[in-house]
Computed example of a mutant assay.
Amino acid sequence: MKSIFLRKISLILALSFWLVGSATAQESSLLWKISGNGLEKESYLFGTIHIICKSDFLMDERITTAFESTEELILELDMSDPQLQLKMQQVSMNPGMKNIKGEMDESMASELDEFLMSNYGVGLAQLGVLKPFVLSSMVLIKALPCTETESYETFYTSKATDAGKTVVGLETVEFQVGIFDQIPQDLQLLELGKMLAEDYFQTEFQSMMEAYLAEDIRKLDSVMTSSGMMAEYRALLLDERNKSWVPLIADAMKSKSVFVAVGAGHLGGENGVISLLKQAGYSVDPVK
């Protein structure tokens, strides 16, 4: 069970990272062309969801053409790293292997234990040693309204490897997990409890998916950033990371064309990747 879980969890490490910020322009798209500012070749920026129902997987000619025209794939994490699963395992446990079952109220602990037993065959007695964001990811995997899922990161990594493109990660597993370590456990457990609610995937999650598939950044922002962990820790989860990514992306684009695929939450907003690239002098235009 653990090996299966690790293969899946490495794809959705940062569950909250794909949530989107408010757009700064009227135009909206998941795919953006980067040019100008001395670049010899065009590069592209694409907003992903780290795991999605296969029937909703958005991949059309404009996206594949853009990807095929580039020389390097840039992701949040280097998904081609053969040590990625091992690294994830090493940082997924609570300090001292502490079981957090006792940190939850009795009702939530019972509900989560039942969910884990039903879907994974083991309950909180064993899985309670995992950090809250890992448990949230496990709930997401099994609560999606489908049996077949797809990952943009896995898709692009496979295509890049087949085409002989290099794959680069903007961050390490250790860094991403460290971000969650800075967020109070109580708040993370509150988010986990919200995901367990019966109507979450029929209401809030469905609204997010509709906005994503419509490439409507503004609507996605209105659904996701009004409250909760993302609203309170937006700077930590999004803005500060975006600011550290843009110089890395800019440096890579100097010598080659790149395809940057990161959580859609990093695209929009005053401190989003699109805005920051424009501030750095690049032309960033939606590809319709």
Rank of each mutant, 00 (worst) to 15 (best):
L6A: 11
S22T: 15
E27G: 10
I34D: 00
I34Q: 01
S35T: 14
N37G: 09
L39Y: 00
L39R: 01
S43H: 04
Y44T: 09
L45I: 07
I52P: 03
R62A: 13
A66K: 00
E68F: 11
E76I: 01
L77M: 14
M79W: 04
Q83R: 13
L84C: 06
L84S: 11
Q90G: 10
S92V: 02
M97A: 14
M104I: 11
E106H: 04
E106M: 03
S107N: 10
D113W: 00
F115Y: 15
L116C: 07
M117E: 02
G123A: 11
G128D: 04
V129A: 08
V134T: 14
S137D: 02
L140Y: 07
L140H: 11
I141R: 01
K142G: 07
E148W: 00
T154Y: 11
T157D: 11
S158R: 02
A160Q: 06
D162N: 14
L170D: 09
Q176S: 05
Q182V: 08
P184H: 06
Q185Y: 05
Q185T: 10
L190G: 15
G193H: 06
G193N: 08
A211S: 10
L220R: 00
D221G: 10
M229A: 11
R234V: 09
R234F: 06
A235S: 10
D239N: 06
A250D: 06
K256C: 04
V260Q: 04
V262P: 08
N271Q: 07
L277H: 00
A280C: 06
A280K: 12
